[in-house]
Design a protein around this nucleic acid. Structure first.
Ligand code: FES
Ligand code: FES
Lengths: 146, 146
DNA sequence: ACAATTATGGATATATTTGTCTTTTATTAT
DNA sequence: ATAATAAAAGACAAATATATCCATAATTGT
């Protein structure tokens, strides 16, 4: 459904939201090992999320690392998709027509539009903060490591 | 959601189901122009669908082309996904964990599993034949061309 | 000031996907 | 038999996604 880059982006962001704050920034090494992703590739992704899109914040130097502002924590997961230019998945025609619309619907449109609506809600209605909060009981996972 | 290859595979198959039969085989040129896809790339895809996976049939030479057996027409759209090795989309974790399961669920699993179920049903419950049939009123589209 | 730390940025490498072009093989009609 | 037709097959090209490595810049603590 999503690219590896976007999958890592979501997992990394949730991890940062959960573990980091302005006084306890998280290094890229901890992040990538904790979510089981390639370190340097993940670093690039975090740059995207921190650069113009202000989803995560970072500082360099000792005790530097990544964290999220309380404002950013309120963003929906969909903000990550948008930053990664993969929000299109929530708009596209499921069989690849240039435009998904009621005017020129594909044979799967009628059923798929209902599913797509739920996908949009899934990524729109939950904030990053809420997801991170839900993780704190230890019964949810964002890594493959044991 | 799906690769271009799979999108073309679905559109091409629906087109063949709708227009072709054993006595009226459809050429790759007509198919690719009719569904607005790159011809030779589409040809390769149709080879996959006709080779070991017997979703479409073909014959060479004059009056040759592609068609579907009545047996193949009864297959669900999901058979195309399987042939294209993209059935995984209906099984994978939405944020890329190696395994989507109740045992080690990701933070989006609880909600996403309901959506995934509907996706599976969408591709499982409708046969290729039914989709092709529904297209015959002319109000559904599988092309970008006007 | 200096050394250590950590993100940033750039260059490069590899793999996969997508797409094109040419040749070959099978089939049909004459 | 021969020529025409159309898919099959293979070689190649381009674009994109994924991943690694190294140098640079910013920050901190001493
Ligand atoms: S037109 Fe295909 S999903 Fe809407
Ligand atoms: S574990 Fe992530 S969707 Fe099921």
């Amino acid at each position: 459904m999503f690219s590896k880059a976007t999958e890592y982006a979501i997992r990394a962001t949730i991890y940062i939201a959960q573990k980091g704050n302005i006084d306890n920034k998280i290094g890229i090494n901890e992040i990538s090992t904790s979510i089981d992703s390639p370190q340097h590739f993940t670093a690039k992704i975090l740059q995207i999320l921190s650069k113009k899109n202000q989803i995560i914040s970072s500082t360099r130097g000792p005790n530097g690392g990544f964290y999220m502002s309380s404002k950013a924590l309120k963003l929906p997961v969909r903000a990550i998709l948008k930053a990664m230019n993969e929000d299109t998945v929530l708009e596209k025609c499921v069989i690849g027509l240039n435009k998904c619309s009621e005017i020129k619907p594909c044979p799967l449109h009628k059923q798929y539009k209902l599913i797509k609506l739920q996908l949009i809600q899934l990524f729109e209605n939950k904030s990053i903060e809420e997801l991170a909060e839900e993780m704190k009981d230890g019964k949810l996972y964002i890594t493959n490591k044991k």
